[in-house]
């Protein structure tokens, strides 16, 4: 297995009391898989992502990527954040070049790679704009181009479309699905949106809070194009609703 998470847990001390953010998480992820971590706020999905990405390592258990224990962020992996994390003082091109600057490649090569990925996310006309001049959706596209430019093994996405309007979100979901298939990246994607998870993921890791843990793992057996209104799609969506006990039960007993 590519990513191996075993009995991982994370405890914080908050105002003198111990708080368990994550408990007993065991999960294996294969190379090239698209995994969604799904759950309500406080279920530890972002904590788990931050732990796998190496920002805040776990306090219990272990997380291994390619056989190596995760202790700090690796430049082989890249994280995309909800609030984009673009540098407002750099234009789009320079933002995309940021990750390439730590690598030993010539200026011209750097520019060529950056332009290729700006092109891929459809922002060629905006390469000289500054982030604050762009819409939220466009800013997140820049962040995606910046992440892809360094050719990472794994892309971590922490509610990347959470701040976008519904239509833009659907467009970006299409983009990211296409990218995951064409570029063959392993993607770990945190979301609280059930439909988003069903649309994107190969497997959905459903998490519940207090303490944060994995409730179940749902495979999405739909290959190729995913139609949000098809029976297969609704079936998986239904499954998740059931896991969260959010389905309406007509034969409920009445208590007076």
């Amino acid at each position: 297995m590519y990513i191996e998470i075993q009995n991982a847990g994370k405890k914080f001390i908050q105002n003198g009391t111990e708080f368990t953010a994550l408990e007993n998480v065991t999960l294996s992820i294969e190379k090239g898989e698209f995994i969604c971590l799904l759950g309500p706020s406080g279920c530890g999905k972002s904590t788990l992502l931050n732990a796998i990405a190496g920002f805040e390592p776990v306090t219990e258990g272990s997380i291994k990527i390619d056989g190596k224990e995760v202790k700090e962020p690796s430049i082989k992996n890249v994280t995309i954040f909800q609030n984009y994390g673009l540098l407002p003082w750099r234009n789009v091109l320079k933002n995309v070049e940021l990750g390439l600057e730590s690598k030993k490649i010539s200026k011209d090569e750097r520019k060529k790679i950056a332009e290729k990925y700006i092109d891929l996310v459809g922002l060629s006309n905006f390469r000289n704009s500054h982030p604050l001049q762009l819409s939220g959706g466009m800013q997140q596209r820049v962040a995606i181009a910046r992440a892809l430019a360094v050719d990472p093994d794994i892309i971590f996405m922490d509610e990347p479309f959470g701040a976008l309007d519904a239509i833009t979100r659907i467009k970006l979901q299409d983009d990211i699905r296409k990218i995951s298939r064409d570029e063959k990246k392993t993607i770990i994607f945190v979301t609280h949106d059930i439909e988003e998870a069903v649309y994107l993921a190969d497997r959905i890791v459903v998490m519940t809070p207090n303490p944060g843990k994995i409730k179940s793992i749902v495979s999405v057996p739909i290959h190729g194009y995913r139609d949000r209104t098809s029976g297969d799609f609704l079936h998986v969506r239904n499954q998740i609703f059931e896991i969260f006990n959010m389905k309406y039960e007509p034969d409920i007993e009445y208590i007076i």
């Binding site: 700090e72 962020p73 690796s74 430049i75 994280t79 954040f81 940021l98 600057e101 360094v150």
Partner: peptide, 23 residues
């Protein structure tokens, strides 16, 4: 978030100071 982005892309001192923190 700037520190996180720098870590994610492996930007270390002194570049971190010059490229990220100062601006």
């Amino acid at each position: 978030i700037y520190t996180k982005v720098s870590k994610s892309f492996g930007i270390k001192q002194p570049q971190l100071m010059w490229k990220i923190i100062l601006p």
